[in-house]
Design a protein around this nucleic acid. Structure first.
Lengths: 186, 186
DNA sequence: TCCGAATGAGACACTTTTGTCTCATTCGAC
DNA sequence: GTCGAATGAGACAAAAGTGTCTCATTCGGA
């Protein structure tokens, strides 16, 4: 764990609580001086961009772990269903760590991050599409909408957890179940 | 339509595009000078609070229109199902107009607005609860979670619309359908 | 037309934050 | 213990935004 990682970790935790935290507040949260913080991250934007990048790294790792492309090629129904469940559960965990990046306007406005987000969205959509072809997911909705739906439910889960409306342990089940089955009585 | 409403409308439109817009930018968007804007809204916070209040007004009106409490008392399955559909569709429209209030940190940090949000959440949750009792909604999820799920899907819908991934006309159907049925193959 | 209210333009002070810089101190590897 | 790198503390300038104020102008109703 490098010093840089420790700083980023502290910044992440603080920004999850207060997305508008200043460099001074972030430095304090990391137990370092503002000068040192600036030595590691020249600008606030560079710090946020780095956190955004790491957030996207996690997303990418989840897709890698799901072997999205392999599954799509194989078309194994059971395997795809299992991968989808694990993927969403992983996302819930990631959203807990990196939640603020989902709605932070500085990060959302970064062109480079948006470009990569677009690529990952396309990759993820391919998995949803494979799920549709395999008969695991309903095929009357655009795969890209499914990406957005997951995103929205992650935001919802984060908020529900923050407000104490859902116990952390139940969150992943709730998000996954709602994602797959909705709230209609079966 | 009072002058105040015109200003608020312009501010709303701009803030939906750039939630960090300054008072100067908002004044320009409204075609008035910054001085005049400050005459109507002493502080930026007061402007945002007003928009947040109007957003909650709309939410409240939706609940009123749905006759949430009456339906809950009557327990008419068909009526409840219909009201839920209309309610969510209405929310999608509201989210299009007031979307930025869903994630704006100034608004989310306002104690008074939060208190009212809590009340409306409780009211809305009562409707979901009634839906559960009537057998319209699955009863293995907390009613409050359903509130959050709707909220998240509204954020998702807004984002999907903004990025052009979903045609505006299809949005309400998509949100409602995902809300009720999820994305699992039936 | 007249008068008062509302507005626009601009100056101003103030606050907050950012990013830079310096210097003394501390830390760690050797 | 020594030396160099890293750090903390603090000063500093600059930028951006906010809120106030003044004054001339415009607008609208009586």
């Amino acid at each position: 764990m490098t010093k840089r990682d420790l700083i980023l970790g502290a910044a992440q935790r603080l920004l999850n609580i207060d997305p508008a935290a200043s460099m001074g507040a972030i430095a304090e949260a990391g137990g370092i001086s503002r000068a040192t913080l600036h030595r590691h991250f020249p600008t606030r934007e560079s710090l946020l961009t780095e956190l955004g990048t790491r957030s996207l790294d996690r997303w990418q790792e989840r897709l890698d772990a799901a072997s999205a492309e392999d599954l799509a090629a194989a078309g194994d129904r059971e395997a795809i269903a299992r991968a989808i469940s694990e993927l969403v559960r992983g996302f819930v965990q990631d959203a807990h760590d990196f939640g603020f990046t989902l709605t932070d306007h500085v990060i959302l406005a970064d062109a480079s991050l948006n470009e990569r987000t677009e690529q990952l969205t396309t990759r993820e959509a391919a998995l949803w599409s494979a799920g549709q072809r395999a008969g695991v997911l309903r095929d009357d909705v655009p795969p890209r909408w499914i990406c957005h739906a997951v995103y929205g439910l992650l935001v919802a889960g984060r908020e529900a957890s923050r407000l104490g409306d859902v116990a952390p342990r139940e969150l992943a089940d709730l998000v996954l179940s709602t994602f797959l089955k909705g709230v209609d009585a079966s």
